[in-house]
Nucleic acid binder design. Structure first.
Length: 311
DNA sequence: CGAGGTACCTGAGAGC
DNA sequence: TGCTCTCAGGTACCTC
């Protein structure tokens, strides 16, 4: 389940192995992963073929590969008439470059493989490159997906609503703390709100809350400023630790997001530890249902909030 | 606008 | 053995 650190490890791997490569072929083996691309698989393949990958970018759990603006390639538009839109663009306003936008969802992987390597069980999209390897999108559950974003090189408009992530140098701590403390929802729900802060998933939310001694259902507007700042600090701490562990196992061509990333080896204090003793106080970790998933917490270190008084 | 709920999707594993 | 059920969860979309 890739969260920010895993996606960043993938981005770094792609930066090394894919930047500068030209896409020579695209094979979409399942429609669902390209469902967000207007025009579907055929349009997706046409929009990519012949384009050159000129970089790698990430915001939260999204990553995108800016493409060159080669005139040979079919220009992408927001709608279904790409060529007309391209010609309608005034010549003095060169459109921002397009980008291949990627979300790994729950089980997505981007692999760099030799073309002759056997197909993975859940191989969905193959992207041939003018290299000794190709890019593969493998995704069992297909919550993830790929699309070509028109003019999305700098920031794809499809993800304009996604907030900056806490490792972004332009992330505004003060603004985040203020916005968080204006909300009445439980603090875990808000950590998972990608429009408020991006990159955090269920696992890192639980870990950051455990480190902060905060229960996930604590209303955000009941946090002190100091508590909110401390929570943000712990979010960053958990992510950086994960990044440090994941970053070392990616020397090979194999760019992975599950297993080898060190993700599951990492010492987790709360997530997945139901009934195990809390590493701080020894109390049994509890699991409760939350938003169609699970929350893990120490009932002693992270006491449940009292019910808000009905006014 | 915010809060909170649900559909989407597949396969592993449990229980019978 | 084979069936059914539950669970994993990020995001878009829905209602209130």
């Amino acid at each position: 389940m890739p969260e920010l650190p895993e996606v960043e490890v993938v981005r770094a791997g792609l930066e090394r192995h894919v930047t500068g490569a030209t896409i020579t072929s695209v094979a979409v083996l399942h429609d669902r992963p390209v469902r967000r691309h207007p025009g579907g698989a055929t349009s997706f393949a046409a929009a990519l073929t012949g384009r050159k990958v000129v970089g790698t970018r990430r915001r939260g759990k999204y990553l995108w590969l800016p493409l060159d603006n080669s005139d040979d390639a079919e220009r992408v538009s927001g709608g279904d008439s790409g060529q007309q839109a391209a010609r309608a663009t005034p010549p003095d306003t060169l459109p921002a470059g397009d980008a291949l936008l990627v979300h790994l969802g729950m089980s997505g992987q981007l692999l760099v493989q030799p073309p002759h390597a056997p197909a993975e069980r859940h191989l969905r999209v193959r992207i041939g490159l003018d290299r000794a390897w190709e890019l593969r999108f493998v995704d069992q559950r297909m919550f993830g997906g790929l699309s070509v974003s028109a003019g999305g090189a700098d920031l794809p408009p499809e993800i304009a609503h996604i907030a900056r992530d806490p490792l972004d140098p332009l992330f505004d701590d003060t603004e985040f703390v203020a916005r968080l403390r204006r909300r009445t929802a439980g603090v875990k729900r808000l950590l998972l709100d990608q429009g408020l802060i991006s990159g955090i998933g269920n696992i890192y939310a639980d870990e950051a809350l455990w480190r902060s001694g905060l229960h996930g259902e604590r209303p955000a507007d009941r946090l002190t400023r100091a508590q909110a700042i401390e929570l943000l600090r712990h979010v960053r701490e958990v992510m950086v630790e994960a990044l440090d562990q994941g970053g070392t196992s990616f020397d090979s061509l194999y760019v992975n997001v599950n297993g080898e990333s060190g993700y599951f080896d990492r010492a987790l204090h709360a997530y997945g530890r139901e009934d195990a003793p809390c590493d701080r106080c020894g109390t049994a970790i509890r699991r409760v249902a939350f938003m169609n998933r699970s929350s893990y917490f120490c009932p002693r270190c992270q006491p449940a909030p009292r019910r808000r008084r009905v006014v």
